[in-house]
């Protein structure tokens, strides 16, 4: 099965083609380019390089959240459009899960962290080992302090990945000695990891119309919403 995967969820952009689990090719750049202009030419160049025409792709995969509002929509639109035109299924992969896949097979914990602004991060927790990677905690939007608290007393090294990794590492390393940063090539979301996740059980393909973003509501927004709802209630 040939899987074409793309990621435009953060500042980096990436696309990859895998065939029955073998990575045929991958492009990755992280230079603040406008993804809406770069991602499709990148996909075209990748397919030309690996000599696989687009209509031979069996499944299209894309990171569908959390991440940059605009970035996510660019990737989703590109995949929905291609899948619809080709009559092929597609699948949305959590950005945080794709990040954790970068540490596949390693005996460690992986905490993906994406900068959600206003002292908050999108984060989750995974464990690497003989089975590859498995999830310990669901994707969540948390204040930085709460995210740090959740990593205390870990008994394995904890790798931070994602665009918030450097920031969190600098803030937390004093109190969390087991924190690690991986090599630069593994710090950001890679389309190869999106393709890897898409081929695993638990990621059922869907029709392009059904592919949707998975934004996480920020805790501050949650509080504001509750405050507004309470106001409406008291007026009744």
């Amino acid at each position: 099965m040939k899987i074409l995967a793309i990621d435009t969820s953060s500042q980096s952009a990436s696309c990859a083609l895998s065939d029955d689990g073998k990575l045929l090719g991958e492009f990755y750049e992280n230079v603040k380019l406008t993804h809406s202009q770069t991602i499709l030419p990148m996909v075209q160049q990748l397919l030309a390089t690996v000599r696989v025409p687009l209509d031979q792709v069996d499944l299209l995969a894309v990171t569908n959240g959390p991440g940059s509002f605009t970035g996510l929509r660019i990737g989703l639109s590109a995949v929905k459009g291609m899948a619809h035109a080709l009559g092929k299924p597609c699948v949305g992969i959590s950005t945080l899960e794709a990040l954790a896949m970068n540490l596949w097979g390693q005996d460690c914990l992986v905490a993906p962290v994406l900068d959600a602004r206003c002292a908050q991060v999108y984060t989750a927790l995974f464990q690497g080992g003989p089975q590859g990677i498995h999830r310990l905690r669901e994707d969540a939007a948390l204040p930085l302090d709460q995210a740090e608290e959740g990593l205390k007393n870990a008994e394995l090294p904890v790798f931070l990945v994602g665009d918030g990794a450097q920031m969190c590492y600098n803030r937390w390393k004093e109190h969390l000695p087991q924190l690690r940063l991986p090599a630069p090539a593994l710090q950001y979301t890679r389309a190869a990891a999106v393709a890897l996740a898409a081929g695993l059980p638990g990621h059922p393909p869907v029709e392009p119309q059904a592919l949707a973003p998975a934004y996480l509501r920020l805790p501050q927004a949650e509080r504001e919403l509750l405050a507004r709802q309470a106001q409406i209630e008291t007026r009744r």
Partner: peptide, 12 residues
């Protein structure tokens, strides 16, 4: 609110 602001792409 913050959701509304997020959906303008402001943070990008």
């Amino acid at each position: 609110g913050l959701d509304s602001l997020y959906s303008t792409g402001f943070f990008d």
